[in-house]
Design a protein around this nucleic acid. Sequence first.
DNA 1: ACCGTAGGAGAACGCTCGTTCTCGCGTCAA
DNA 2: TTGACGCGAGAACGAGCGTTCTCCTACGGT
Lengths: 183, 183
Amino acid sequence: MDNAVARERVLDAAEELFYGRGVQSVGMDEVRAASGVSLKRLYQLFPAKEQLVRAYLERRDGRWRGRLAAYVEREEEPQRRVLAVFDWLEEWFGEDGFRGCAWINSYGELGATSPLVVARVRAHKEAFGAYLASLVAGAGRPAALAAPLFLLAEGAMVTAGITGSTRPAAEARKAARLLMESG
Amino acid sequence: MDNAVARERVLDAAEELFYGRGVQSVGMDEVRAASGVSLKRLYQLFPAKEQLVRAYLERRDGRWRGRLAAYVEREEEPQRRVLAVFDWLEEWFGEDGFRGCAWINSYGELGATSPLVVARVRAHKEAFGAYLASLVAGAGRPAALAAPLFLLAEGAMVTAGITGSTRPAAEARKAARLLMESG
DNA sequence: ACCGTAGGAGAACGCTCGTTCTCGCGTCAA
DNA sequence: TTGACGCGAGAACGAGCGTTCTCCTACGGT
């Protein structure tokens, strides 16, 4: 088995396990079992668990933002693109196995002990905020609108995770539209 | 030493340690050392760590909401009371050792493995949301305003925790005022 | 004074887990 | 054919931790 293939399999398994059950409650041996990649190879690819966690967060970041952007960019009109973010959140919240935002959860789990994780979480949130700001700018709305929209989105993610409901997305969207129109 | 006193000392120590470093990275022996209560007594008071965690979340919930309410109720005018919530958030974010919302963090750390923790987190968020709704009602504003204000507050807590800045509180407050006026 | 009991200090137990080591098998070059 | 090497399976190691146990001391009642 190619190294690149093994790496993908490990990351696939790690992502499902880490996201679904938390990082600390998943042992390396479980990643081995779920991925079918031997422990020896696993440690060749990722010399320590923390590096696997880092790779998990990084790869998920790329995919998550990619999915969001793909959804948003199906919308032609710039004003609607901003609101499409919240539509996508609603879809995401409704997916099987949704358990909140991986980065917010990771921050809660490891933020106090792992600066590396904190850095990844900050990078992800910063990128998401910048993307939101670019949509706001593209819609010709004042830049100051980006921050509250970001907070609404974050609040929706947290609340959807904790309550298991998709409603926060619709509520955030409604508030976002009001802000967009009044701003 | 009285049992009640020992209980308080244990909870004081546990709260500082659990909030500051996360639950899982703090051992019972560290709680013993920080509280000065022997392991034997500790286990008489809390037969398992999970019950100590539960008591920590419950006591902190009462205190947190008490502090918020005390701050808000210094404001006479009902309309301003709603916004005072965000002023208080800003104060809280600026406190030494602030590390985000204890319940959001606990959900991230233990939500996937401990239904007991999830229940405490939901109870706290529900209570906070209900309080916010009561302030909105007291201000004579439409009930539908409560949900977006709640999401703004949650987003601010998450973002302040991750970034270490107090700014999200001011941003959320500004958006809240706009929504209050336009709603 | 003596015994029973409560409580503290800390060792001990059992388990989990990150990480490394051992062993044996298969493969490929010379 | 042989020998060096890579790799997988899984044992082993060492640390941490939740929980319990042991032992000793101090004290209160008779």
